[in-house]
Amino acid sequence: MKSRITKKFEILKEKKQKALITYITAGDPDLGSTQQLVLEMERAGADIIELGIPYSDPLADGPVVQRASQRALAAGADIDAIFQLVEDIRKETEIPLVFLVYFNCVFKYGFEKFLNLCQDKGIDGLIIPDLPLEERRELKEMMKNYPVDLIPLVAPTSEERIKEIVADASGFIYCVSSMGVTGKRDKFEVDLGKFINQVKTYTDVPAALGFGISSPEMIGKLKNLCDGLIVGSAIIEKIEEGLEDQTSKDKVFNFVKKLDEAKNIA
């Protein structure tokens, strides 16, 4: 059976549209807000939602996501609570939901227990930023028995590794658009067109760009290169801006709407 992610990309392809993938950290600033934010982002045009499982040591993340992680952990967003959140969200929407989770959380919680809950509660994919090709075999093997995609990351430095990384991938390919950690940057030093073409040589699975995409303008520039665009830190900044006067929800909605419009302008 096709996953929600695959179905979503197929529908978008027919409409000649790109996927807007938005990231927030689960539990930032609290679990109730996350549920509302997911629904708002969907209403504003997000096609796939990435939920970060907050982690004490988020190696691949810049300061913005680190702050989100710390707020979420302080608010008690542990794994069980997050699965409960997913169950609640699933009562309201069928939007594809992907976890961004560090390997140690899955490992310590237990692969099987974690995957069973993903299946039961309706998580469609896992992005594990610190699980490269060499270390993924055991988990990937196990995931074949679950309707959950293991979404591989390829980096501009991957080069000859790309072929093996994307072999039998499902869901989408997460193309890391710049060196470094997550968060805004002014420009991309990588030749992204060449990079995506390299990826496309080896797979038909949709390719989404992420890391550093922070504005409608950037989306406008990059959308023709790939099948999906991932925005994270810039959305979390909107949450932060609205923390004090409790306007996060509106700020995120308005921002995602602009991203969606930028994506859909021909």
Binding site: L59, A60, F103, N104, P129, D130, L131, P132, L133, E134, E135, L153, V154, A155, P156, T157, S158, E159, R161, I165, V176, M179, G180
Partner: peptide, 20 residues
């Protein structure tokens, strides 16, 4: 060898793999 028994390995972002 990348491991000492079951310990060790390379659990890092893909960006670093070629550098390692």
């Amino acid at each position: 060898p990348k491991r000492f028994g079951k310990f060790g390995g390379q659990f890092v972002p893909e960006t670093l793999m070629n550098a390692l």
